[in-house]
Write a protein that binds this DNA or RNA. Structure first.
Lengths: 245, 245
DNA sequence: CGTAGGTTTGAGTCGGGTCAAGAAATGTGG
DNA sequence: CCACATTTCTTGACCCGACTCAAACCTACG
C-alpha cells in the first residue's frame, strides 16, 4: 500500500522521486498498536514522531472533572507531534481508536530532511498550515453550530479527508467511531449524540451500527452543515519558485 | 520599545545578537491601523505576513447566518499567517480590535531567514507549536467548560500571554475587549457574557468599564478555571544541539 | 446635544445535559 | 456452545444553562 503521507503531499506539493524515497525511508520502524492503547500520554516526554499509516487515532485532553475533549481525529497520513522534540512534556495524549499501523519516526531525521530539501520543508509547512486551519474549523464548529449541524460538519470533514487517503474510494465513507468518541470530539454528551444520529438515520443521511457509521448522503450533510472544504485545501496548489528558493 | 516577537523568542530559544538584528530588520514597513479595520478579509489573496507590534487584533470567521466566531486573539508579538504565501486565498479574516501597530513582512524574507539560520527556523517552529497548542486549548475550553469557567480561562490565558510582552508588567492586566468580542471568542452570546462578567465583578475577580476590563484576582480566576499554563510554554526551554544541527 | 456603539436587565424559551434503566452487541472463559 | 461480563447503544423524564427578544440606559464622541 502507498504511504498515505506521500499521497497527501503529492496532492499539494511538488515532490520528485528522490523526495518520495527520502520520506518513505522515514517509515522504517512500523508498529501495530491495538485499539485503546495510548501512543502518548499527557505529561510524558516523547522522542518520536508518529505517522499513522492505517487506522484511526485521537488527540485528547482529560479535565480534572474526568471529562475528555478530543482535539483532533488522526487518520492515515496524519503526523502526530511534528515538533515534539522541542517539548519537555506533551500537553495531551494520543489514543488508538482502532487497531492501527504507525511509523515511529525520529525527529532528527525529519529536521535533517527539512533543512536539506526545500521541497520537503515546503511540504511540511503546508502540512502545518492545513493542521492549523482544521483546528480552527473545529473552534468555529463548536462555537457557532447546533448539535445537528455540528455532527454533520464533522462528518463532512472526515469524508473529505478520508477520500484523499482511502484505499477504497468507491465505497461510501465509513467511520469507526463510537458515539462517545463523537461526543468528546464535538463538546456534546454521548446521549445527545445518540439522539442526533437517530435523526440523521431517520432522514437517511447515514446508517450506523455498533462502533461505526456509514455516510449515505454526503451532499445532504454538506448542505445541512454549510460545509465548505476550503480549509482542508484538497485542491492542487503548487509552490512558487520563490518559495522553493 | 523592544520588538515583542524577539522578546518572546528569547524566552524560549537561543538567538544571538545577529539573529536579533535579522529579525528586527524584517520590521521595516510598520503601519498604523485604526480599530475596526480588516488587515485581511476572508477569501482575499494576501502576500504579506503581519506582525503585531502593539494593540490587539482577532482572527475570525463569519458564518452564513451572520454570526461570527473569533478563532484567535492576537497580541503584540503575534504573527498572523506565517504561511500565507502558500494560500491562494485566506480562510478567514483579521480585524484590529484596537488601534494597532503592525509590521508588514514579506513572506520570502522569512523563508530565506528560516532556510539560512537554524536558530531562527527553530524559533519559528517553536512559534507554530505554541500557536497550535493555544488553538487546541480553545477547543477544550469551548467543548468542556461552562460559561463562567470558560470566561475565567480565557482571562488567565490572556494575562499569561500579556505578561510576556507587557511594557507595564506591574500593572494588573487590562483587556480592551467588548463583551461581544469576548462572546464571539468563546462561543457565547454577548448577553450571557454580560451576566458572567456581572458575577465576576460581584466576586471581585475583575472590574470592567465600557470597552475594557481589568483583572483584580488572577489566582482566583486560575483556580476557578482550573488553569494550567503548560500549553503556553512560558518557561525557558533551550534547543538541543541536535535540533540546531 | 444627538447619535451610535456598547452595556444592562428582565421574561420566556429551548437545546442539550443529567440521571437512570434497559436492550443489543461483542467478547471471555469454561 | 453456553453463561456471563462488558461495552455500546437506546429511550424516557426531568432540569438547567445559555439563547432569544426586547427595552432601557450609558457614555464617548462628532
Amino acid at each position: 500500500m502507498d504511504n498515505p503521507l506521500i499521497v497527501r503531499f503529492r496532492r499539494q506539493c511538488h515532490l520528485d522521486a528522490a523526495d518520495v524515497d527520502r520520506i518513505d525511508y522515514l517509515c522504517t520502524d512500523v508498529r501495530d498498536v491495538p485499539r485503546g492503547v495510548n501512543l502518548v500520554r499527557e505529561g510524558e516526554r516523547v522522542e518520536r514522531i508518529h505517522l499513522i499509516l492505517s487506522g484511526w487515532a485521537a488527540r485528547y485532553k482529560l479535565l480534572p472533572n474526568g471529562s475528555r475533549q478530543i482535539t483532533a481525529l488522526l487518520l492515515p497520513g496524519d503526523l502526530c507531534d511534528l515538533r515534539c522534540s522541542m517539548l519537555a512534556r506533551m500537553d495531551d495524549g494520543i489514543v488508538a481508536l482502532t487497531p492501527i499501523h504507525v511509523a515511529f519516526v525520529p525527529p532528527d531525521a525529519i529536521t535533517r530532511l527539512e533543512r536539506t530539501w526545500p521541497s520537503i520543508a515546503h511540504a511540511l509547512s503546508w502540512y502545518c498550515l492545513v493542521e492549523q486551519a482544521t483546528t480552527r474549523a473545529w473552534i468555529v464548529n463548536m462555537g457557532r453550530r447546533h448539535a445537528l449541524e455540528r455532527v454533520a460538519h464533522l462528518f463532512c470533514e472526515l469524508s473529505t479527508r478520508l477520500a484523499v487517503v482511502s484505499d477504497a474510494p468507491d465505497q461510501p465513507p465509513h467511520f469507526p467511531l463510537t458515539q462517545e468518541e463523537i461526543a468528546d470530539a464535538l463538546g456534546l454528551t454521548a446521549v445527545h449524540v445518540n439522539r442526533v444520529l437517530h435523526e440523521l438515520r431517520r432522514r437517511e443521511f447515514i446508517t450506523s451500527r455498533r462502533g461505526g457509521l456509514t455516510i449515505l448522503d454526503l451532499p445532504g450533510l454538506k448542505e445541512m452543515a454549510g460545509f465548505n472544504d476550503n480549509y482542508l485545501h484538497p485542491a492542487m496548489a503548487m509552490p512558487t519558485e520563490a518559495a522553493l528558493g
